[in-house]
Design a protein around this nucleic acid. Sequence first.
DNA 1: AATGAATGAGTTTTCATTCAT
DNA 2: CATGAATGAAAACTCATTCAT
Lengths: 224, 224, 224, 224
Amino acid sequence: MSGVEQATGVQQEQVPVTDRGRRTRAALLQAGRELFEERGWADVRIDAVAERAGVSHGTFYTWFDSKESLLRAIVAVVVEDVFTATTVGPRLPPDAPYARIEAANRLYLTAVTRHARILRVLDSLADTREEFRRLRVDVREAFVRRGMEGLVRLQELGLADGALPPRATASALGAMVESFAHLWQDPGEHLDEDAAVDVLTRLWAGAIGLPRSAWPDGASRRPT
Amino acid sequence: MSGVEQATGVQQEQVPVTDRGRRTRAALLQAGRELFEERGWADVRIDAVAERAGVSHGTFYTWFDSKESLLRAIVAVVVEDVFTATTVGPRLPPDAPYARIEAANRLYLTAVTRHARILRVLDSLADTREEFRRLRVDVREAFVRRGMEGLVRLQELGLADGALPPRATASALGAMVESFAHLWQDPGEHLDEDAAVDVLTRLWAGAIGLPRSAWPDGASRRPT
Amino acid sequence: MSGVEQATGVQQEQVPVTDRGRRTRAALLQAGRELFEERGWADVRIDAVAERAGVSHGTFYTWFDSKESLLRAIVAVVVEDVFTATTVGPRLPPDAPYARIEAANRLYLTAVTRHARILRVLDSLADTREEFRRLRVDVREAFVRRGMEGLVRLQELGLADGALPPRATASALGAMVESFAHLWQDPGEHLDEDAAVDVLTRLWAGAIGLPRSAWPDGASRRPT
Amino acid sequence: MSGVEQATGVQQEQVPVTDRGRRTRAALLQAGRELFEERGWADVRIDAVAERAGVSHGTFYTWFDSKESLLRAIVAVVVEDVFTATTVGPRLPPDAPYARIEAANRLYLTAVTRHARILRVLDSLADTREEFRRLRVDVREAFVRRGMEGLVRLQELGLADGALPPRATASALGAMVESFAHLWQDPGEHLDEDAAVDVLTRLWAGAIGLPRSAWPDGASRRPT
DNA sequence: AATGAATGAGTTTTCATTCAT
DNA sequence: CATGAATGAAAACTCATTCAT
């Protein structure tokens, strides 16, 4: 199980024991998430986080060691959520590959969309801070691994292009799905969730060479 | 900044008139690019740029208004280069769609790879600075548009899945290619250029539903 | 100043809530006043203010937004003081115009003298910074208005030259009194307060044409 | 002859020998004056002066040693002009004191008005730079001295209040006249030159106690 | 636990002045 | 003489983090 065991850094964040403490910490977490989403990393001051959480500046440090530490805590939730969404899908039969791909895409697309803003913040730090680069990778990891395993299985069954290197392929297609979540934000790309999932699944299935015969009727013959 | 607004509007960057000036400006540009690539945006000081360029601190401001301004100038070159690479490819016959896709992918992949580090820096700013978001989009635009036009043409010829919305599809596939350039950096994804182009082209061709009959022999039957 | 505008509007200066805060703020105010008086505006560094107040550099910004902001706070006290001195004088009978003029002159002269150095600083900024020009005017306003009203009353009673335009006259005479406070600093003009007030009052009373009969005995016949 | 012999500072400004040089120097002088008048001291960059004069930045230093030096040269002209205006008036008969006061006031008022903006700039520096404080005094000196001498003469003739100390009185009244030149700039004090001179002369004559019998008919009986 | 205040390292930027050509 | 460029000493301001109550 990747991506969840990162928490053991150097300094442990304080863990609240009283109810009041729990509430304060939660408020800071919430305020931090909102602000990061609104303004990005660099433009968020600890001051602002504390203020929005309704506590004094100093209190922030009762619960978090640093600004980084706050983001780490926020991202931990995200990693967990994406991981869960990716892993705990409906258990579809192995002989329905298209439906499996579709289900995985939908879950990942919605999960990533849910966290699109905070993931962008993470991205902006991933460039220089090794720790966050790892976290960024962790978010993707479960999905990529799942895609990779699925691909291998299909290749073994002769249902996917055997020439494709599994890991790289899964990475590339995973990136494709994820990029969709971000492009969605922009005006100009207007698709509802079903349409988006449909497009992504078609691209994916076609890309790995899943034979049209294995596509559902609606998908393979869909008109323009 | 004192109280009275100077009469001049937005100051234009200086343009060197002497050779010495040209050399200095170029050195700063080069030093800036290197440092941004090595350390990312936030960890580069103007001081360091000047030092690496072998000039004094103040000289930086003779040629650039600000750190932002420097990046802008660096990125302008990148945008230009990627645009050119994307646009000025070998003119392949329209009836060789696979080869066309391959050529386009190769050009874009190498161009983006060439600039991978600086594009990451740009990404990290794109989240909050509207100006840089636009630039980021500009880098992709030519490639996405080209992919879109190619797709439309193939759809009209019945050689591509008519159900795919052109713009979104081209965006998604473009993102896929681009992500490859970045993943390449990471250890663990080791493919040489030819192999990478091959994978991407297979994925792309398959994704849009280009019939296997339109694939070159080597591509369609390549073994694992 | 990064690209994104923080949500807060014009930041208000902090108001101390603890005693320690009050003490620190007062010390900065005091240090600032002294330094401005000693060195003028341009030659005062925030660093120096903080040092003299016995706090660190950053602490200055806990209490004031900027150097301007500090001066504003200092001047606010001055405006207040001059206003009070000008307004809250001994209530003399209307039928003792000379004594009234004298009392007003004394109060204004001593008030302006008390603040002569800081007013000079204000002057030096008033030329270009509209905000400070207004403050400068504010300092004078109460005295000028009072002089004007007094003049109008005397004109109505036939005790002052009816040809004098009240506002301009009061301005000119006010400037005369004020200039005295500054000239006093210079060596070469040595008069004690009583002598200065006497001269100014004679000039004033004579200027508006107050009949000699309304002058006190001592004043009208005073020998050289 | 006060106020004109100041030029011998430490470094002598360059003196042009060619025609081209003369033109360049004059252009810089002119540009400097305009800019100081428009923006005040601190907000004028040497860059801007050079640009407005149509020469390159470096050329400025061919003709002036420093920014201070430029202002010094500009002010020298002003001092000279005010001095001349004050000294070289119409030679009126000693037995027409009111007319003499009026003439002096008019000359001084117009001279100071002509240079009001640049004198303000000088003021803003006078607070801290001893050199400019001297210059500032020099501008006033001739007028104050003349007023003082006039007052002494009238006192000796019994035509002025003998209780007035000549120097202080002349200073105060001089400041009064000068302040008028500045207040004129402000909206709200709207008087044409004749009216202003009239008011000032009445105030002056009254202030020193010039008997009404020595006032011209128009002046003494002017109605409201 | 919470709070208000203090800290100071870290950065960008300005601009008068000098200089090589 | 003029020019374009280089210089570097200032200086203001920010903000994460620490601390005394």
